[in-house]
Structure formats: structure tokens, C-alpha cells
């Protein structure tokens, strides 16, 4: 009778084993550092939650309908902030995207600088930018617009540059060979290839910006966030419930619309 053997197990080299061991050790060290460093006052947190749970949660689910007018005005302002910000970013990101695209700037060094600028901008959380702009232009919605515009430029510029890098250059060459001038190449060679993707990314970023701009008010940069922080400070959880509902509805609707538009474009 034939014996059936299992296939031999792959042999791991010493180097691989060592590497795996080092990684495991590093992860363990990270967790030890984390759990030794963090201090949670469980007693106080539990005591607070037992006291507050019955007060906060039921109120959150019974929104204060009398504030509908004010909340919808602020939600509209949030949408304005997000739209103006994304629009500015969609335009600002175009030159930066071209700068950071290697096939356009033609020079690895320049493209590298462009990429560094963009990732530098991306590293700032939106709210930190908002703090800077609130100090610069005062606590109003326009500070929020600027924060969203700069924050989105980083991401859009990177996505744009990737789109530009993936352009099919054969089309451009064919146009050049058949005698098209620069303007014609721009309009009929480059634009049809990049415009749909650019638009799609800009709309996608608008989705993100709606979420981002809804919290900008926490640092005074306008929008619904202003009401969030007031409601929290006054412990007005009924109003918070309504605000939460408004955010959920607006974000869901805009996500849905944006997904449909993007599917149509690309």
C-alpha cells in the first residue's frame, strides 16, 4: 500500500526567523510602553457614567425639535464652508499636482519638492489648520473655508499628480505627430484624460470635507461645530441629539449623491 506523505514544510532561513523575532519583540515593547504609560481612572469614569448614562442617552434620542431652524441654518453654513473650501482646493491642487507629477515637471528633483510640499500639507490635521486660521482671520466661517481649502489641497494634489502620471502619452505623441498645436493638445489630448478623474476626486474630497467642516466650529471656525460645543458646555443633550441627527442625514445624503455623480463621470 502506498504511503501518503504530507509535502515538506517550507524551510525558513535563520535571517527570516530573526527578523520575525525582532518584529514581535518590537511590537511587545510598544505595547508594554503603551499600557505602562496610559493612566485611566476607571473608578471615576465608571462613577460618572453610572450617574450620567440615564441623563445623557435618553435625551440624545429625543431631539429638541424647537432648534430645527437654528440647526438647519448652521448645517447650511457647514455645507457652504465645505463647498467653498473644496472648490478652492480643487483649483489650487491643479498646479501643485502638475508640479509633483514626474512626467510633467520632467525633473525628479522638482517633482520631489512638489511631493514633499504636498505631504507636508497633508500632515496637518484639519483642526490644527483651523486653529491657525482662526488666529489669523478671526473666529468666523471664512477661517473654516481656508482650513478646508489648505487641508484638502494636500490630498487632492497627490491624487491629481497620480492621475497625471498615468496619462497615456501615446495619444499626445500621435497628436503632435499629426501637427496639433500646444493648445489643441491641451484641450483634446490632456483634458479628456484627466478632467473626469480630477472631478471625481474633487467630489470625493467634498464628501470628506463635509465631515471635517462639521467639527471646525469647535475651534471657532464656523458651521455646526459651534452649536456642538455650546450644546456640550450647556449639557443640552436634547439639542445635541438634533445636531447629531442633522449631521447623519446631511452626510448620508451627500455621500449618496456624490457616489452617484462619480459613477456617472468615470
Amino acid at each position: 500500500m502506498a504511503t501518503y506523505n504530507l509535502p515538506p514544510k517550507p524551510v525558513k532561513s535563520v535571517w527570516k526567523k530573526l527578523k520575525a523575532g525582532l518584529i514581535i519583540l518590537a511590537v511587545i515593547a510598544l505595547y508594554v510602553w503603551t499600557f505602562r504609560g496610559i493612566e485611566i481612572d476607571w473608578g471615576r469614569a465608571m462613577e460618572r457614567v453610572i450617574r450620567n448614562f440615564g441623563i445623557v442617552i435618553p435625551k440624545l434620542f429625543s431631539p429638541d425639535w424647537s432648534a430645527v431652524g437654528e440647526v438647519s441654518m448652521k448645517i447650511l453654513e457647514t455645507i457652504f464652508i465645505a463647498f467653498a473650501g473644496s472648490f478652492m482646493a480643487a483649483i489650487l491642487a491643479i498646479p501643485l499636482g502638475f508640479l509633483a507629477a514626474q512626467n510633467m515637471s520632467g525633473n525628479r528633483f522638482i517633482a520631489g519638492i512638489g511631493k514633499w510640499i504636498l505631504s507636508g500639507v497633508r500632515a496637518f490635521p484639519d483642526l490644527i489648520l483651523a486653529i491657525l486660521f482662526v488666529v489669523a482671520v478671526g473666529p468666523n466661517a471664512f477661517a473654516g473655508v481656508l482650513a478646508i481649502a489648505i487641508g484638502s489641497t494636500g490630498m487632492l494634489g497627490k491624487l491629481y499628480s497620480e492621475v497625471i502620471e498615468s496619462i497615456d502619452m501615446n495619444v499626445i505623441e500621435a497628436m503632435e505627430a499629426s501637427g496639433a498645436n500646444k493648445i489643441q493638445i491641451l484641450f483634446y489630448g490632456y483634458m479628456p484624460q484627466i478632467i473626469p478623474e480630477f472631478l471625481s476626486y474633487a467630489i470625493y474630497r467634498f464628501e470628506i470635507d463635509i465631515r471635517a467642516s462639521s467639527i471646525l466650529g469647535i475651534v471657532g471656525a464656523g458651521g455646526i461645530g459651534t452649536m456642538i460645543i455650546f450644546a456640550a458646555n450647556n449639557r443640552n443633550w436634547n439639542e445635541m441629539g438634533l445636531i447629531l441627527l442633522a449631521i447623519i442625514i446631511v452626510v448620508t445624503v451627500i455621500d449618496f449623491l456624490s457616489a452617484r455623480i462619480r459613477r456617472k463621470i468615470v
Partner: peptide
């Protein structure tokens, strides 16, 4: 629905529930 709620709004609510702190 969970994804539509911004992180800071969640934090505001949890601070209301558990008090100020890392938890």
C-alpha cells in the same frame, strides 16, 4: 451610520458621559 458621525462629536458625547480624561 457609524461612519457619518465625526470623531470629535463622538468625543464630545463621551466626555459628557465619562468626564474629562483619556478614556
Amino acid at each position: 451610520i457609524l461612519r457619518t458621525i465625526p470623531d470629535l462629536v463622538l468625543a464630545v458625547i463621551f466626555v459628557g458621559l465619562f468626564g474629562i480624561g483619556v478614556f
